[in-house]
């Protein structure tokens, strides 16, 4: 063992996000510039950095979750993307994408690592663990 790093995920690769959506049974809506949400900010949660109330409901692309009423906005921010979505229970998203969209972020990270590692010639094994997914790369 040599070192251990903790990473805060940033969404940089749109293709991996599309692959993650496909794996989870979601539909990536390329070029859809509005996403379904409650329609009015009620102020019960802080807005993400750099996002104002006027930005809510607008996006660069969207993700449609078949079993949910609300959608996820994929918003271009700097070199990457952020996800905007309404966690109101009636919208039905949280059940499918997890708290703080953890399930979607996890699927994105897994697809992203697999895609790039394959390019570099690593052998990849994937294993479901108690609290997440473990990818092992070896040369």
């Amino acid at each position: 063992m040599s070192h251990i790093s903790r990473i805060e995920l940033e969404i940089m690769d749109l293709q991996s996000l599309k692959d993650a959506c496909k794996k989870l049974g979601f539909h990536f809506m390329e070029g859809q510039t509005r996403y379904q949400w409650y329609g009015k900010w009620v102020g019960n949660q802080p807005l993400p950095d750099g996002i104002s109330e006027e930005d809510l409901g607008k996006c660069t692309h969207a993700i449609h979750v078949p079993a949910a009423v609300f959608e996820i906005g994929v918003v271009r921010k700097g070199n990457g993307y952020i996800l905007l979505w309404d966690s109101w229970i009636g919208g039905g998203l949280q059940k499918h994408i997890g708290e703080d969209a953890g399930i979607l972020k996890q699927a994105y990270a897994v697809e992203s690592v697999k895609r790039e590692s394959r390019k570099k010639g690593y052998r990849i094994t994937e294993k479901r663990m108690k609290k997440g997914i473990r990818l092992s790369l070896s040369l």
Binding site: M1, S2, H3, I4, S5, R6, I7, E8, L9, G98, E99, D100, A101, G102, I103, K105, Q106, A109, V110, V113, Y122, M129, K131, G132, I133, R134, L135, S136, L137, S138, L139
Partner: peptide, 30 residues
């Protein structure tokens, strides 16, 4: 054996661990 282990938790948190590397090569490889 040189390995890179990536744990992606259900919360979206990510932990990367390198195994079997010596010196700074672990940083470069990951």
């Amino acid at each position: 054996m040189k390995q890179i282990i990536i744990d992606v938790l259900d919360s979206g948190e990510i932990k990367i661990e390198t195994r079997g590397f010596k010196g700074k090569s672990c940083i470069e490889e990951s």
